[in-house]
Nucleic acid binder design. Structure first.
Length: 390
RNA sequence: UGACCUAUGGUGUAAUGGCAGCACAGCAGAUUUUGGUUCUGUUAGUCUAGGUUCGAGUCCUGGUAGGUCAA
C-alpha cells in the first residue's frame, strides 16, 4: 500500500483531500505544519494558529489517521518572510504564497513527509496533476482545478517536475461546494469553516504595519502624473515589443505634488487605498513607485494610461518551466494564455524568447503589471511555466 | 494702505430664503490562500459675533482668515 502524507491545515479542503485519499486506498498520514507564531500586524485579534491545529486534530481523529505536527517556522521565516521583506525593500511586490509552495510545502514539508516514509504528499489545492509520456520520460502536467472559481494552479506555478512527481491534489477535480458537501456529509468539523485569506500561514495582516518590523517609515512625496503626459507621439510602436514591455519611468517634474506618504516601499502599482489624498473627481491609483527617491507616482481614474501596459519581460534567470520539454529556444515565439495575478482570467498573449529574457506581449493592455509578481503561462488549462516580472 | 472677491465634512465642490447633497479621502463589512483590485455600508460640514425673517449656508452689519487688483 502506498503511503501519502497529507498537509492537514485545519481547513475544509485538506480535510476532504485526506478523506478522498483514504477512499482511493492509500495509507494516509496527517501532518500539520506550524510555520508562524507572530501576530504582529494581524488584523483579527483572535489567534488563529492554535485553532487550526485543533481542527486538524479533530479531522485526523474522525478519519482515523495518525496525526503529526512539524514546525517549519525557522525555514518559513528564512525562505518566505525574509524574501518578502527584501523584495518590498527593493520596491518590488512579492508573492509570498508562490514561494511558500516552492520552498516550504513542496520542499521542507515534502522532506518531512518523506522522512515519515511517504510515497506522495497531498494538499488541498484546487488543481490537477496528469502524467504523460514524453519521449520515454514520465512527464507531469500541472492542470487548472475543475472549479473555475477556485483554480489555484497559479500558486503552484514555480513547482518543478521533481516536486510535481511527489504531489497529489485530491480535490482538484471537484467544485468547492462539492467539497463542502462531502465534509458536511462526513460530519467533519471543518465543513463550515471560512476559507483562509491573506498570506498563507501568516494570515490577514495590515501590510504597512507588518513591513514596519523591518522597513522604516519615511515621508516622501505623492506626485500625480497628468494624462497629458501620454501623447501618441512617444508611445512605443505596435511592433516594438522591447519598448512595449519596458516599465515606464517617471520623474518628479512629470507631475505635481498632491500629498505625502510614509514610505514608497509600502505601495504597489494599481493600489487605490491608503494614499490619503482626496478631493479629486476620480480616485487616484498608484502607477509607479521609486524607492530610491522615495516617490509614489499616481494617476487619476480607472482608465489612466499609466495603469496599463501591453507587455512585460521575465528576465532569463527568472524563467521557470514547469514543463522543461516545452521550453522555448532563443528566438522562438508562441501564442499562449497568461495571467499575472491569482484569479485573473487568462489573457491571450505572444511569448517571445530572447537572450535577455522572455517577452510577453498581451493582445489587450493589462492593468497593473507589477514588478516582483509572477506571470504564469498556460496552454489551455495546463500551466507551462512562470517567472518574476521585471 | 485702499478697492474688490471668497469663506460649506479631512479635500474638491452643490444647494429660486424652505429637509445641507455629490465626489474623493477615511472607517467598517463582503469578495479574495500574495500585494492589489472590486462591491456594500458608514463617519464627518455651513469661519465668527450680531441683525432682518415664520424660516438664513443663502439677505444686512462688524470681526477674522485667504485671494485679486491698485499703491
Amino acid at each position: 500500500m502506498q503511503r501519502v502524507v497529507v498537509g492537514l491545515s485545519g481547513g475544509v479542503d485538506s480535510s476532504v483531500a485526506a478523506y478522498l485519499l483514504k477512499q482511493q486506498g492509500f495509507e494516509v498520514v496527517a501532518l500539520f505544519m506550524k510555520n508562524w507564531h507572530d501576530k504582529t500586524g494581524l488584523l483579527k485579534a483572535e489567534c488563529p494558529f492554535d485553532e487550526d491545529v485543533d481542527f486538524a486534530k479533530m479531522v485526523a481523529r474522525k478519519l482515523e489517521m495518525p496525526f503529526h505536527i512539524v514546525d517549519l517556522s525557522e525555514q518559513y521565516r528564512k525562505r518566505v518572510v525574509d524574501y518578502m521583506f527584501s523584495e518590498y525593500q527593493q520596491g518590488r511586490t512579492p508573492n509570498p504564497d508562490v514561494l511558500c509552495n516552492r520552498e516550504i510545502k513542496f520542499d521542507e514539508f515534502l522532506k518531512a513527509a518523506l522522512a515519515l516514509g511517504a510515497d506522495f504528499v497531498a494538499t488541498g489545492h484546487y488543481c490537477r496533476k496528469e502524467v504523460i509520456n514524453v519521449n520515454g520520460d514520465e512527464t507531469y502536467r500541472l492542470l487548472a482545478g475543475v472549479d473555475p472559481n477556485k483554480d489555484q494552479s497559479y500558486f503552484l506555478c514555480q513547482l518543478s517536475q521533481q516536486q510535481l512527481a511527489k504531489a497529489l491534489f485530491p480535490v482538484g477535480g471537484l467544485l468547492k461546494p462539492e467539497v463542502r458537501e462531502i465534509a458536511s456529509l462526513l460530519g467533519l468539523a471543518t465543513a463550515e469553516r471560512k476559507d483562509s485569506q491573506g498570506i498563507c500561514f501568516v494570515g490577514k495582516v495590515d501590510l504597512p504595519v507588518f513591513l514596519q518590523q523591518k522597513l522604516a517609515a519615511k515621508k516622501g512625496s505623492i506626485i500625480e502624473i497628468p494624462t497629458s503626459r501620454y501623447s501618441t507621439l512617444n508611445a512605443p510602436a505596435e511592433g516594438d515589443f522591447k519598448a512595449l514591455s519596458a516599465p515606464v519611468k517617471y520623474k518628479p517634474t512629470d507631475g505635481k505634488i498632491v500629498g505625502t506618504h510614509n514610505g514608497a516601499h509600502f505601495f504597489t502599482i494599481g493600489q487605490r487605498k491608503g494614499l490619503n489624498v482626496g478631493g479629486t473627481p476620480e480616485p487616484l491609483f498608484v502607477i509607479d513607485t521609486d524607492v530610491e527617491s522615495n516617490v509614489v507616482y499616481v494617476g487619476q481614474g480607472q482608465e489612466h494610461p499609466g495603469l496599463f501596459r501591453k507587455g512585460l519581460l521575465v528576465p532569463t534567470d527568472q524563467i521557470h518551466w514547469v514543463r522543461p520539454d516545452l521550453q522555448l529556444e532563443n528566438g522562438q515565439t508562441i501564442e499562449l494564455l497568461v495571467r499575472i495575478r491569482y484569479r485573473q482570467p487568462l489573457q491571450a498573449a505572444t511569448l517571445i524568447m530572447k537572450t535577455e529574457g522572455l517577452y510577453i506581449l498581451f493582445a489587450e493592455p493589462q492593468r497593473g503589471i507589477t514588478p516582483g509578481q509572477f506571470a504564469a503561462w498556460y496552454a489551455n488549462d495546463e500551466l507551462i511555466g512562470s517567472g518574476v516580472i521585471l
